[in-house]
């Protein structure tokens, strides 16, 4: 199966979970679907379903925790737990919180939901791996709106200073945050330039071009650069479902029956 087909499957799983649970955040979950697909399906995040917490494991920290449906579905598709578990998303008494809880399921590495936390957790984990001599990769997926948080930049500088080149930050540059467009709110402009200025090796790519994502990751894991990597994934919020694409309200809305049916049709 190609990355594109896998990404479509991930998007179908995401919308199924969100429809069933009445869940929000379709927009930001669909925008990272291609990046998540290549990281998970391309072997860049080396998972061990049989021993998911071994100390030298690779880790993916989903810092934009509201888009957990993309994480849970990616983990299930990668065989970390049965797909039936996805029925627990947001359910009373379940461990599958909409904003995830640490180690609730294999591969859920951190609690997230409060923005601006994941990078420092990833940095600490990458630092621990270096201290221990582990060949571990740490992916941190953060939103471009999340980059409003000062804590992101506090820690971005530290990770660069420590030359943590096994830290791979993916910035989901969908340009649409909770109350409007980035250009209208803080206008971060050239996101790539900002990370470059903080000392990162930057790949500024189309975040829906699986080939481009794979190429950036392949280049990163040659480890021929001492800087941490920042992949600026230029994306469209709600990507793949026509009526969700680049629409603010799909940060919040949940697909009803008709919308779900149409989404599934478009994602066939």
């Amino acid at each position: 199966m190609t990355y594109e087909e896998k990404a479509k499957e991930l998007r179908r799983e995401i919308e199924t979970v969100l429809h069933r649970a009445g869940g929000s955040f379709s927009g930001g979950s669909l925008s990272i679907a291609d990046v998540m697909t290549v990281i998970f399906q391309g072997g860049f995040l080396r998972l061990n379903p049989g021993d998911p917490w071994k100390p030298d494991r690779d880790m993916l920290v989903l810092s934009k925790g509201h888009c957990s449906s993309a994480l849970y579905c990616s983990l299930a598709m990668a065989g970390m737990f049965p797909k039936e578990e996805l029925l627990n998303y947001g359910a009373d008494g379940s461990d599958m919180l909409i904003h995830p809880k640490i180690r609730s399921y294999p591969g859920v590495e951190t609690s997230s939901g409060s923005l601006g936390h994941g990078l420092a957790l990833g940095t600490g984990s990458a630092l621990a791996a270096r201290i221990r001599g582990y060949d571990s990769r740490v992916f941190v997926v953060i939103g471009d709106g999340e980059c409003n948080e000062g804590s992101v930049w506090e820690n971005a500088a530290f990770a660069a200073k420590q030359k943590l080149n096994h830290l791979i930050v993916v910035v989901d540059r969908n340009r649409l945050q909770g109350c409007g467009r980035d250009s209208e709110i803080l206008n971060y402009g050239d996101m790539a330039e900002k990370w470059r200025a903080f000392g990162y090796r930057v790949f500024d790519i189309d975040g829906h071009d699986c080939g481009a994502i794979e190429a950036a990751l392949k280049e990163t894991v040659t480890w021929n650069d001492e800087r941490p990597t920042a992949i600026i994934a230029q994306t469209v919020k709600g990507k793949g479902v026509s009526f969700m694409e680049d629409r603010l309200e799909w940060h919040y809305k949940s697909p009803d029956e008709a919308q779900y049916a149409q989404a599934m049709e478009e994602l066939r």
Partner: peptide
């Protein structure tokens, strides 16, 4: 970590993630 308490606490927690 510099004058960056949030970064310090988060980094410390990240170190604990690997034991």
């Amino acid at each position: 970590v510099g004058i960056a308490e949030q970064s310090m606490v988060g980094t410390a927690a990240g170190l604990a993630l690997r034991g």
